[in-house]
Design a protein around this nucleic acid. Sequence first.
DNA 1: GTGAAAGCGCTAACAC
DNA 2: GTGTTAGCGCTTTCAC
Lengths: 373, 373
Amino acid sequence: MTTSRPATIADVAVAAGVGVGTVSRVLNGAPNVREATRERVLAAMERLGYRPSHLAVALSRGTARTVALVVPHLTSPSVVLRVAGSLAVLGEQGYDTVICSVDTPQQRDHHLSALTGRHRVDGAIVVSLRLAAEHVEAFRRSRLPLVTIDVAVAGVPQTLVDDVAGGRMATEYLLAMGHRRIGFVGDTMHGAQAAGRLRLGFESSQRRLAGYRRALASASLDIDPALVRRGPHGPATAEALARDLLALPAPPTAIFAASDTQAIGVLAAADKCGVSVPGELSVLGFDDIESAALLGLSTVRQPLWDSGAEAARRLCALLRGERVVPVVQRLPLSVVTRSTTDRPRSFPTATGGKAAWRGAMAPRMSDPATGGQ
Amino acid sequence: MTTSRPATIADVAVAAGVGVGTVSRVLNGAPNVREATRERVLAAMERLGYRPSHLAVALSRGTARTVALVVPHLTSPSVVLRVAGSLAVLGEQGYDTVICSVDTPQQRDHHLSALTGRHRVDGAIVVSLRLAAEHVEAFRRSRLPLVTIDVAVAGVPQTLVDDVAGGRMATEYLLAMGHRRIGFVGDTMHGAQAAGRLRLGFESSQRRLAGYRRALASASLDIDPALVRRGPHGPATAEALARDLLALPAPPTAIFAASDTQAIGVLAAADKCGVSVPGELSVLGFDDIESAALLGLSTVRQPLWDSGAEAARRLCALLRGERVVPVVQRLPLSVVTRSTTDRPRSFPTATGGKAAWRGAMAPRMSDPATGGQ
DNA sequence: GTGAAAGCGCTAACAC
DNA sequence: GTGTTAGCGCTTTCAC
């Protein structure tokens, strides 16, 4: 008969006429239990509707088989893909995953410091969030394995792509197509920037811009500052920035957006301005989120889901006591050609445009297969 | 000095020259502690770098202040919004959230039965997943509060919208605009459907279709079966279905898609077929996910984020021992008019196709106000 | 006000 | 093989 109080291991022991130790052995599949005994115990459990207490097991073992996933802006498509990747392998490895969504530096600090408390989680994956030295130190002190995705933290195993190379790859791709006036739309840093505090910072956009600049420099092209536009992340801002670019006396024939989300804003701007894509304007994004394929957006693909999965695998390795090498894991980048990029054409209203389009230039394409070196 | 072994409450007690009971009182802000003592204890904690053990506290109290969020297809935009809403209030209420991502009926069953184990979580929110009676029973037996979002489960507090009314609303909206041939693109049931087993089922699409039918019936319009197309959820499928519709001898002048995701597929189809939107075809979606605003997609809006937040609030109430009423919480629906719907016009040329090439599926923007992402 | 001790439910080391 | 017992680290009576 079921009693009101949930059955414990002791109840089972009594019911089966054995000691708690034996019950525990059965529970954990220990080898040294006579088959008859084992079945008696199993029967008792069944009869009593016994369910082990997760907490008791965890406390006793000193580990809860739980890890934390700390992410910014959960609704961002790229973040979601990463989370999904992590969740898949974590679940498969038998870990529970508590998710900490961070939208402000305060939340980040709060979660991070809470996580380093005793017996909270066994380890953590941090996505795209800059960590202060004190945070890292807190993890180290707590002996909590930590890995990051899309953000470099000294001494912490990290899974990322070479954004500079990606920016360069993107730009060289457009150059190879014959574009000479290439616009850039990306993020500015944002968020509070109080004195010594670190802000929620996403620097990938900066690095991609750096790659863009290097590519232009390598091609001995001047970098027209007017072609570089930055603003808070989001399609709406990107749209506004792109409109500015299109309204220029000498508008770009191509725009490289630092993220697909922003590229979508650029497409919207082109549409509103009656600029055809890719006829009058090529647009190249970055990330390859799901809707990129849907929109036919050409983009620099980074393995988002895989980055989550890989980081999770590395965390699991750490949890097993293994070391992970290399500390910096670089995932490959590749240009995905869809229908928003093409060779440039002459401008309708030739404002001195001339667009010296000479396909002469050797198409030194960035090879699509290699990641950052 | 920091020792190797993490400090426990006992260490603090010794260091402060008090009993563990007192330390515990300080920890929990009990009133009956002399100020001097309290400070001595606090100092000792500081000195020892004491961090309370989450597990020990949880086991002792019998609750871990953790809830589970069980969701299907985490990468779906609508699901993500709900998760974000839940996470926000759960975090604010001091709960940890473990997320269980479910892609197959097996995973669902696995998670659900694991969650009902003792001391695993304090309660759960289930999103869009059908629950078998045995699941619900397991929760009841374990005395675990349970609430659902977007799925009706007898006796379980649920947060949802009236999908039938929504389908009707959508259709009537199009009818009011003057459309008479209105196509429908939605889901079929999918997934394993073994004998007695329940499958991962999303029935909202079915209900929206029912609303569509009722609206047409109320308007005394015949329902042309050829105008109703269903397939596995996803934009690609939706695109194919929409193309079929557009290739009909008498194509619809408007299409109601059972979800925004599918509506996006419909837009893609229109673009590919050279059918202008909303000139030759009106498209109306359902959900109002973030990219709907971005694409200027007219849609039936349901409060996704709010549904997550509301369900979380109700779960918290349950956890406080309160009862929630009404058991069935209905959230409001509304038609959001953007730029993919208009009154019908006559068709230029029958099935000419001709692809009036206007860029690669240029997004139709309308309200740039959605910073989003 | 504060200390001592009995749980919370389990694991694991140690005897028999 | 199996029972016994001492933790795991904290909360919470119940005395003093």
